[in-house]
């Protein structure tokens, strides 16, 4: 991501807005203009904020700006509408398959000490 694309994609990253194919109903996140399945037009689609962890792993080698704190748990999350998306996890020491999670706004990275702070969606265990 560059500083320009950080800005262009901020809304979909803040609010988990994907796209849905007007022809076949396929859902994509991040959003796309055309469907990768049928080539149909896609329209903005609000994904549900809650879901559960399908698969997870802990990534220990990432670019500096993502990886100041050693390791990042990441997961494939199945959202309440069945959409599966890739996401960063937070506030969790031991992720588990089936763990219920919700999307919240967190800091994703910063451009050094003086640059911008970039925010976006991460998943954390539901508070209740």
């Amino acid at each position: 991501m560059t500083e320009i694309s950080d800005w262009i994609y901020r809304i979909s990253r803040y609010r988990l807005i994907g796209s849905k194919c007007v022809e076949c109903g396929e859902v994509a996140y991040p959003p796309r203009l055309t469907c990768y399945k049928c080539g149909g037009k896609m329209a903005d689609y609000q994904l549900p904020r809650r879901g559960k962890i399908l698969y997870y792993t802990v990534v220990k080698s990432l670019p500096e700006r993502y990886n100041r704190y050693g390791a990042y748990p990441v997961a494939i999350v199945e959202l309440e509408d069945g959409t599966r998306i890739f996401g960063l996890l937070t506030d969790v020491d031991n992720p588990e398959k089936g763990m219920e999670v919700e999307a919240v706004l967190r800091k994703l990275y910063t451009y050094g000490e003086h640059g911008k702070i970039i925010y976006g969606v991460k998943f954390r265990p539901v508070l209740g």
Binding site: T90, D91, V104, L105, R106, K107, L108, I117
Partner: peptide, 16 residues
């Protein structure tokens, strides 16, 4: 706060 939290993310969670 966790390393990825600040006043903006805390405000977001409370408002949400």
């Amino acid at each position: 706060p966790n390393y990825d939290e600040d006043t903006i993310t805390i405000s977001y969670e409370a408002a949400l």
